[in-house]
Design a protein around this nucleic acid. Structure first.
Length: 931
RNA sequence: GCCGGUGUGGCGAAAUGGCAGACGCACAGGACUUAAAAUCCUGGGCCCGUAAUAAGGCGUGUGGGUUCAAGUCCCACCACCGGCACCA
């Protein structure tokens, strides 16, 4: 800033009110059954009500990972938006839940520990302290009594508990939900029979149970990152590099914990219809789940009993399948390979195995593959078709094998062209289009066999007919495939939740796992001196030999949970954050997540504030969740999955956790680029606060533009809103007393905050009736701010506040009532200065203590006051503006028309023309059509 | 390649199909001041004009269309941002 004197003493005002709010616990949210102290402003606002009778509003921020770098200006963007809405809802009379916490497990603290030997707990605590100081300095109205920290044993005790709920469940496809594993029915062969040794049966049953659990162990090829010393989930690998740090990763088979999220694929997809998220976000989740409908078809291997099963979305093109392709890793490859091809196949396989996925995609421009020498029989026409292997077929999707229809599939077409494989037409495209490589719907042709014909049918009809035929002949069946994979849930790290799992050895010398009892929770990680993985690739926890080995010979699981675990359910812990007996009480869960509070008569009927039903579903769960797009698929999908399991098991009462979700846009650097250390364009909120104060900072973050848009930071812009706050201040306070205050400040800087008492209200502020013009300005502002807050349009709401102040600055006499209402409107945006001025207004009266501004009822506006008597009506000729005429608001159409035609400015444009038509919209405009 | 989003002054942005550019930044001129800072007032899309006005013309990424009227609706395209990407 260009130095200059402070616009107003925010440096005293802001800490003053922040400590007042802290001492008073002003923003505590009240749970059902809690007794609100009579002196609390909530009780003063709602003297007769108990919390559960009030409509609730749960407004949630994505909690931050407390990094060492501290807050950057992107964090407070969403936090400011939610804080404004929280304060607005409180003013409307809602019981508002607005919590914050720390997603504090994670890699940076652990890597720092590896380097320095400092326990991650310590780094984490320091970082949390920094974040907390920064967040508190912004004056957010969080309920700090509900603060959570995912690394706190009192918290992760319940993360582990939820893991056990998942572990102890299986997904029943009949009921389409999770059920207790104890109630899992066994197949007939595992029913107890006479003559079968009990021990053997019990082991088989255990293996069967373990294979059905929602949390299971699998030897899976996983992404191993040498530098990070851990495996990564598919989602954490970007372009063959680790998302964190950008280190190379390799495929490696390892024993891992997996969560069966795929069982929920359909519900995760379907239930998107019941929630109010942005289109793009829902689309990203849909793409990630990747549902595709089609059929599985069995191709008999020629001269063999073996069968190759393929998945296709286009069973209608079966007659066009001229060859098949297996993924190189497919289990039938060896059996199909002829001696002549053996060498080429082996060479290709080992070449593919060496390639990382990055290389595989990079080289994807050119298709590669090798003929196995084997043949399969096309079930529709009995033709012998060659079977190839190629890396464009992925082992992990569908069945790992395809029928190739080069006529109507881009990839198959490329491949067939390169290797001179036959290409035949089986779909007729619309007239004028080339059928070669035509992949969209058309009409089937050349699709007649001995038993079945679909020639002449449209693609959808053809699909239906051939699928029915395949099912009848038991050659295949309709199937749905998903891209979504099960969730790789274990990490080889220290700084994460240990699994509450023991490994034991059975009578057959096979290892098996067993859950710890709930009473053993929380299971704390051991103390370590060295946080690195062991030299033989064991996780760091394996270094704690005493911790791992139990006296009875069982051994603890040494993997830990991924960072996502803690963030999968934190919004539930907020509901009842200090409960030691449960993750959350059922009463708290039903009140805050349910929709019953909404029906209260205290809810004003409003169009946008009560979110409209989505597809007939009532709003439920978190009312508004605000955060960045970077969590569009991972966190938001995992959390929905856990929530659904908890819902199935009866622990929560809603099917979805987050009813409405809004992504705030990225704040870019002043150069319009993404903020980053390397570009040197990072803005530190602390610097801005010192210079302009928290209120100006908050205001600017919201004034920049629409919440969801990306927008560049401009410190000059902060000065604009800062000047606005200065004008607000000068509107209220007496100039003389402020000059004295400034002088006292210089001579006696120690006295600080009590000097504020010496600042008097401006003389023009009087307890008088506002004029009609003043009321119009005020009520116009109330209307605009109210509507804009309902629509999350913070930038235009602020501009309405500016318009009001610009007008009020010209008032000779300033009615107290109008200024009071203005402060109520300003409070959500700039709470500190609003509270200060509010208390000054009330100091003029003899009330003992003014009502806390944060709980004062939101004003309503009177539309009658906004009506104009004389309107300025634009007059157009052929759609072009020619004049603006003043007419009485109630002027009838005929009068408007006459006035418009009489306009001197309009006449020249009508000369020599005939008037064809005059469009008159009363109160709006007149358009004269002439030719 | 596919999906989603965004294109409006020098800049951030506003605008139920009805006066494009509210509000703010930057800029220019003025008042106050010995001077500056701060503050207050005034101006402002571009072009053409004029001593200064006025009047006029052109303007919301490009090209078409619908309409009395289009930033807004429809079609085609271009650019940028985000996501996915050999998913059969």
């Amino acid at each position: 800033m260009a130095s200059g004197r402070r616009q107003y003493p925010f440096h005293l005002i802001e800490p003053k009110w922040q400590s007042q709010w802290e001492q008073q616990e002003t923003f505590r949210a009240w749970n059902p059954g809690e007794v609100v102290p009579v002196s609390h402003p909530f009780a003063e606002r709602h003297p007769k009500a108990v919390p559960e009778q009030l409509p609730k509003f749960y407004i949630l921020d994505m909690f931050p990972y407390p990094s060492g770098a501290g807050l950057h200006v992107g964090h407070p963007e969403g936090y400011t938006a939610t804080d404004i809405l929280s304060r607005y809802r409180r003013a409307l009379g809602y019981n508002v839940l607005h919590p914050i916490g720390w997603d504090a497990f994670g890699l940076p603290a652990e890597q720092y520990a590896i380097k320095t030997g400092q326990h991650p707990r310590k780094t984490t605590e320091q970082n949390i302290a920094t974040f907390k100081r920064q967040i508190k300095s912004l004056g957010f109205s969080y309920d700090w009594s509900r603060e959570v920290d995912t690394t706190d044993p009192k918290y992760f005790r319940w993360t582990q508990w939820i893991f056990l709920q998942i572990y102890n469940s299986w997904f029943n496809p009949q009921t389409n939900k999770a059920e207790p594993i104890a109630a899992l029915p066994y197949p007939p062969e595992l029913e107890g029979r006479a003559g079968v040794p009990d021990a053997g049966l019990e082991q088989q049953r255990r293996a069967y149970r373990d294979s059905k659990r929602l949390a299971y162990v699998a030897e899976a090829p996983v992404w191993w990152c040498e530098q990070l010393g851990t495996v990564l989930a598919n989602e954490e690998v970007v372009d063959g590099m680790s998302e964190v740090g950008g280190f190379p990763v390799v495929r490696k088979p390892m024993r891992q914990w997996m969560l069966r999220i795929t069982a929920y694929a359909e519900r995760l997809l379907q239930d998107l219809e019941t929630i109010q998220w942005s289109n793009s976000l829902k689309e990203m989740q849909r793409n990630w789940i990747g549902r595709s409908e089609g059929a599985e078809v069995d191709f008999r291997v020629a001269d063999s009993t073996a069968v190759i099963r393929v998945f296709t979305t286009r069973p209608d093109t079966l007659f066009g399948a001229t060859y098949m392709v297996l993924a190189p890793e497919h289990k039938l490859v060896d059996a199909l390979t002829t001696p002549a091809q053996r060498h080429a196949i082996e060479a290709y396989k080992s070449e593919v195995a060496k390639k990382s996925d990055l290389e595989r995609t990079e080289l994807a421009k050119e298709k590669t593959g090798v003929f196995t020498g084997g043949y399969a029989i096309n079930p529709v026409n009995g033709e012998r078709i060659p079977v190839w292997i190629a890396d464009y077929v992925l082992i992990s999707y569908g069945t790992g094998a395809i029928m190739a229809v080069p006529g109507h599939d881009t990839r198959d077409f490329e491949f067939a062209t390169k290797f001179n494989l036959p290409i035949v037409q089986v779909v007729e495209p619309p007239a004028g289009m080339d059928w070669h490589g035509y992949v969209d719907d058309g009409v089937s042709v050349n699709s007649t066999g001995a038993d079945i014909s679909i020639s002449g049918l449209s693609t959808p009809d053809a699909k239906r007919k051939i699928s029915g035929w395949l099912e009848a002949k038991q050659l295949g069946k309709r199937t749905v495939n998903y891209k979504l994979r099960d969730w790789l849930f274990s990490r080889q790290r220290y700084w994460g939740e240990p699994f509450p799992i023991l490994w034991k050895t059975g009578p057959d010398a096979q290892a098996y796992h067993e859950a710890l009892p709930e009473s053993a929770l929380p299971l704390l990680p051991p103390r370590l001196d060295d946080y690195k993985p062991t030299p033989d690739g064991q996780p760091p926890l394996a270094r704690a030999k005493d911790w791992v080995a139990l006296p009875d010979g069982s051994r603890r699981e040494t993997n830990t949970m991924p960072q996502w675990a803690g963030s999968c359910w934190y919004y539930l812990r907020y509901l009842d954050a200090r409960n030691d007996g449960a993750f959350c009480s059922p009463e708290a869960e039903r009140y805050w997540m349910g929709s019953r509070g909404r029906q209260s008569a205290l809810t004003r009927p409003k169009e946008e504030s009560a979110p409209t039903d989505v597809g007939g579903y009532k709003p439920q769960g978190v009312d508004l969740y605000v955060g960045g797009t970077e969590h569009a698929v991972l966190h938001l999908l995992y959390a929905r999955f856990w929530h659904k399991v908890m819902f199935d098991l009866g622990h929560v009462s809603t099917a979805e956790p987050f009813f409405r979700l809004v992504n705030q846009g990225l704040i870019q650097g002043e150069d319009g680029q993404k903020m980053s250390k390397s570009r040197g364009n990072v803005i530190n909120p602390d610097d801005i606060l010192v210079e302009y104060g928290a209120d100006a900072f908050r205001l600017y973050e919201m004034f920049m533009g629409p919440l969801e848009m990306a927008k560049p930071w401009n410190t000059k812009g902060v000065e604009g809103v800062y000047r606005f706050l200065g004008r607000v201040w000068r509107l209220f306070v007496d100039e003389q007393s402020e000059t004295e205050f400034e002088q006292n400040m210089t001579t006696d800087p120690q006295r600080g905050v009590e000097l504020l008492e010496g600042i008097r209200l401006a003389a023009g502020i009087k307890d008088i009736q506002p004029t009609a013009a003043q009321l119009k300005a005020l009520h116009g502002c109330i209307k605009k701010v109210t509507e804009d807050l309902d629509g999350l349009r913070f930038n235009t709401a602020i501009s309405a506040l500016m318009v009001f102040i610009n007008e009020a600055m010209t008032w000779e006499a300033k009615p107290i009532s109008a200024l009071r209402d203005f402060l109520i409107l300003l409070q959500p945006f700039a709470p500190h200065v609003s509270e200060e001025l509010w208390s000054k207004l009330h100091a003029t009266r003899d009330t003992q203590h003014p009502p806390a501004l944060a709980y004062v009822a939101w004003p309503s506006y009177d539309p009658a006051l906004l009506v104009e008597d004389i309107l300025e009506i634009p007059v157009q000729v052929n759609g072009k503006l020619r004049d603006v005429i003043k007419v009485p608001a109630n002027a009838p159409q005929s009068e408007l028309e006459a006035a418009a035609l009489a306009s001197e400015k309009v006449k020249p444009f009508l000369e020599g023309k005939t008037i064809r038509k005059v469009i008159v919209l009363p109160k709006r405009l007149v358009n004269i059509v002439a030719a």
